[in-house]
Amino acid sequence: MSEQRKEILEMLAEGKITADEADRLIAALESDRPVPAVPAPAPRPNGKPRYLRVVVDANDHDGPSRVNIRVPLQLLRAGVRLAALIPPEALGKANAELAKSGVPFDLTQLKPEQLEELVEHLDEMTVEVDQADAKVRIFSE
């Protein structure tokens, strides 16, 4: 197996390119055509992210402050499973309190599968807030 072909298969195995893209690249290699461009994936050492990071840098009158929190995504998943065990009566009371506070949100409509899906897709999320005296970054790594 040629080195280039091996690289393509490795990229496919790591999920950096799709099967179609791998097919195109291999076909281009075989026919000795110039290789079509493949969108460069974001560099990530171990494939799927494992941690959610929250980094806050702020400057106030007491001097600079910094918060750096790293939470395993597995912990979020476990928390979601625990939240799924909350009895419906408690959710009803929480809904009533939310409505009283002006947040008409029905927690009973939130299914554990939806929450798990949300956690699954956190790897694609990056939140950056830039202010004059503070900078907040939330991302997964």
């Binding site: 941690y51 007491d62 600079p64 402050s65 910094r66 790293r70 395993p72 912990l75």
Partner: peptide
């Protein structure tokens, strides 16, 4: 793997 790192004043 959990890590909390806080610096303030």
């Amino acid at each position: 793997g959990t890590r909390f790192d806080l610096e303030y004043a």
